[in-house]
């Protein structure tokens, strides 16, 4: 009942906004979906490397490369890139 009332009132308002978006996304060339997904992972890795090293590694127990959390991020995310390339 409540849902029907809300749909009756708001569907005519929202549908002109969302319908063209749905049509556009439905015709999306699927390899682009993979590229967008991979971009999220690669973009995150690049973003982390754009941060100041002092900020990322503040309070690190040592200066050796294995304490660098930027490297941790890449190591943790690379398997995901491979997974989304494979599937």
């Amino acid at each position: 009942m409540m849902q029907e009332t809300i749909t009756r009132i708001f569907f005519p308002i929202f549908d002109p906004v969302f319908s063209p978006i749905n049509d556009w996304l439905s015709s999306f060339y699927m390899p682009w979906a993979r590229i967008v997904t991979l971009a999220l992972f690669v973009g995150t890795m690049l973003w982390v490397y754009s941060l100041k090293k002092e900020y990322v590694n503040l309070d690190a127990p040592g200066k050796r490369f294995w304490y660098d959390l930027r490297l941790w991020t890449v190591i943790a995310m690379l398997p995901h890139v491979i997974v989304y390339l494979y599937f």
Partner: peptide, 13 residues
């Protein structure tokens, strides 16, 4: 996968 790792990087940093 996509619902965890990028989010945890943003949360962490």
């Amino acid at each position: 996968w996509i619902g965890s790792m990028p989010a945890m990087v943003f949360a962490a940093l």
